[in-house]
């Protein structure tokens, strides 16, 4: 046992008195700190590319358009084009329902 490391009878363990705290026969080691972890970050952020601006981002424009308070339900919000799709679908459905009822009724009659 080196002279500067003595047994501390009060604490019940070896205690050093200045100088190296390493017991003889052992070499001093430095504790290596692991690098600081950074979470939630893309390790390879993509370089700005062709697709970032292509096609043009029109979301903001449409958000302004569809959020205006004109009292219209969402299916008619785009004006004439929407009204055309709505009325033609209703037209096809009403015509088809009548046509279906008529044909099914006719099929019940024997020739």
């Amino acid at each position: 046992m080196s002279s500067d490391v003595k047994f501390d009878s009060f604490k019940g363990r070896l205690a050093s008195h200045g100088g190296s705290a390493v017991p003889s026969g052992l070499s001093a080691t430095t504790v290596k700190e692991s690098p600081k972890l950074i979470w939630a970050q893309n390790p390879h952020p993509p370089a700005p590319g062709f697709w970032d601006d292509y096609p043009r981002n029109l979301v903001k424009k449409y958000q302004t358009y569809f959020q205006k308070s004109d009292g219209l339900p969402v299916h008619l919000k785009k004006g004439m084009k929407d009204r055309l799709i709505y009325s033609s679908t209703m037209g096809i459905t009403i015509f088809g329902t009548i046509f279906a009822c008529y044909t099914l009724y006719k099929m019940t009659k024997k020739d």
Binding site: V74, M90, A100, T103, L104
Partner: peptide, 22 residues
């Protein structure tokens, strides 16, 4: 919002299945 699509979907399915029978 109120929407016509549930109605046209239901009747569309009726027309389609009747159409298959025909």
């Amino acid at each position: 919002d109120q929407s016509p699509w549930p109605l046209t979907a239901a009747f569309g399915a009726l027309i389609m299945t009747s159409g298959l029978v025909v």
